[in-house]
Design a protein around this nucleic acid. Sequence first.
DNA 1: CATCTATGTTGACATACGTCGAACCAGTGG
DNA 2: CCACTGGTTCGACGTATGTCAACATAGATG
Lengths: 124, 124
Amino acid sequence: MSNTKVLPLIEAEGSEAVAPCCPPLTERPFTAEEAEAAARMFKALGDPVRLRLFSAVASHESGEACVCDISDVGVSQPTVSHHLKKLKEAGLLTSQRRGTWVYYRVEPSVLAAMGKLLTLPAVA
Amino acid sequence: MSNTKVLPLIEAEGSEAVAPCCPPLTERPFTAEEAEAAARMFKALGDPVRLRLFSAVASHESGEACVCDISDVGVSQPTVSHHLKKLKEAGLLTSQRRGTWVYYRVEPSVLAAMGKLLTLPAVA
DNA sequence: CATCTATGTTGACATACGTCGAACCAGTGG
DNA sequence: CCACTGGTTCGACGTATGTCAACATAGATG
């Protein structure tokens, strides 16, 4: 694989804390607050276009991608921008302007946190 | 823990295939079809009430729960029923009537599949 | 059958969401 | 300073969604 960069599994550094949201779904019933927080992330991925955009960024080499590289998802460019904004608001992506282009990258801690949410109880 | 039953990690048996939906999000950009399928599941969990209901079922002993056990989430009973139906349509829950009560249980294969979706690339 | 409890279904309503075109801002290069 | 390209923001529009009250259905029980 071309992914030569080690994705850090630490928590977010500069942004607001997004990672330590909730325990695994199967551990105990979610509280209202936990559900609110987790649902925000799930909802952000609950749209096909956003999921494609997110996947495109996440699978891009070096973990980041220019908008121009991923905006071929069948909707207009303003719509792409709108969805990227939603993903950013949900804490799943961060953006950075470099010269002419804007680059988006995934927040690895969030991916890890959501993965943990869905872990099954140890089969035994 | 009280969970004495081994959760089978196989694909769904009776219902339509829901498990082998997509590769990890970070592996390659999702196709439109993959995104459509995966977004359906994420969207189902993208509501706080549904997430609480799902978590309540998933964390219940023996992996199933009666509606009466989980319907205390701050909305009216018809709304609970509505959300449970949505979760069923998304393939996340199955229901079964036993006498007076209706029991819901999670589809373990789906949980596993969604977990895989969110797996990070092997850090190395 | 009458009735009671546990769920599901229907219809209505307000709000949220996805989408687009048009206008707008940020850098780049003449 | 002016045009051009890449992206975002705005305003509008149709559709989907979450919610409830009212009604309907399924078993249990008298």
